[in-house]
Design a protein around this nucleic acid. Structure first.
Length: 305
DNA sequence: AAAAGACGCAACCGCCGGAAT
DNA sequence: GATTCCGGCGGTTGCGTCTTT
């Protein structure tokens, strides 16, 4: 008997006719009594399936772009990142802050980013052992972001180092510091990091009036990182590792690292894009400007000019 | 041009909490 | 109070499409 019942339940992609029936039901009774749709013999779908279809695809005011897809805007991405940091994986809650987006949209967005970064990090370990020649996209430049700051009082910044690597024998570099308060505001907040930056000094700011000037520092603090994070942090010894944070133009920050990277304090978390140049166009999509061959720019010392 | 990999997304599954019985 | 049902949610999977090699 149960086998017969199971047979009656239809699964898989929805047809237009089914959508029509579902829409008619909702128009008549409202978005409720999902299970009655099947009990009335209107559809051979479970109530859960009907609800899901309505919520994710059929209800009005959803963002749906027929020709170009409907990628998250930079603003939406920022919102997701901020709210994810605040609420965790509460996709439904996060979706309430994004008009026209469903929890499924947010969930898919987030998981695809996490997957992508995981792949990048995985590849990076291979790349560190056998660096490839610079990609076309990043040829000639190593750009090392970025700034971090630690709420609530202390702000850290690493500045940008743009390094010309046109030839293996002759290279130059310049530091593109973040100094204005606005830029600090644009920085990424991190808890106190146990990262030792030996290859590049960095400045930090503090709200403490006694320390109002930026300080060059080379300090190391300790923090109980998650075990999963330690491997990542270990790789930070590799100076080129920082390049995964993106080129200067789009400077995608560390907040994209997969959860959990470290434990953030519950309040005062915010992530912003950072741009070294106000006039510079903001990266339109979070992480999209991670070059697929992000470690390609590692200059091979054996490479001849 | 073909194969492999990456990506996006729809939909299913299991769990949970609240309402109804 | 116990059980059942229903809806909501987060995690996961499967598949079609796009991109890269």
């Amino acid at each position: 008997m149960e086998a017969v019942k199971k047979e009656e339940i239809k699964k898989g992609p929805w047809k237009a006719e089914e959508d029509e029936v579902l829409i008619n039901h909702v128009n008549r009774y409202g978005p409720r009594d999902w299970s009655s749709i099947r009990s009335k013999g209107l559809l051979q779908r479970t109530g859960k399936s009907c609800r899901l279809r309505w919520v994710n695809k059929l209800r009005p005011n959803l963002k749906r772009c027929f020709f170009s897809g409907c990628k998250f805007s930079a603003e939406e991405e920022r919102t997701v990142i901020e709210l994810q940091a605040e609420f965790g994986n509460k996709w439904a809650r996060i979706a309430t802050h994004l008009p026209g987006r469903t929890d499924n949209d947010v969930k898919n967005f987030w998981s695809s980013r996490v997957k992508r970064l995981a792949r990048i990090l995985h590849n990076s370990s291979d790349a560190s052992t056998s660096p490839k020649p610079p990609s076309r996209r990043n040829k000639g430049k190593i750009v090392k972001p970025i700034q971090y700051f630690y709420p609530p009082q202390v702000y850290y910044s690493f500045g940008l180092v743009e390094e010309e690597v046109t030839t293996a024998s002759s290279s130059s570099s310049k530091i593109l510091p973040y100094s204005s308060s606005d830029q600090v505001d644009e920085a990424l907040r991190l808890p106190e990091l146990g990262i030792k930056l030996e290859h590049q000094p960095f400045a930090f700011w503090t709200d403490d009036p006694l320390m109002s000037e930026p300080h060059i520092a080379n300090q190391q603090a300790t923090i109980p990182f998650y075990p999963e994070s330690r491997e990542l942090l270990a790789r930070l010894d590799n100076p080129y590792y920082y390049d995964i944070l993106g080129p200067a133009g789009c400077s995608e920050p560390l907040f994209a690292l997969p959860q959990p990277f470290f434990e953030l304090p519950p309040a005062e978390r915010r992530c912003r894009h950072v741009s070294k140049d106000d006039d510079e166009e903001e990266a339109d999509v979070f992480l999209d400007d991670f070059p697929a061959d992000m470690f390609d720019q590692v200059d091979d010392p054996n490479q001849s000019p």
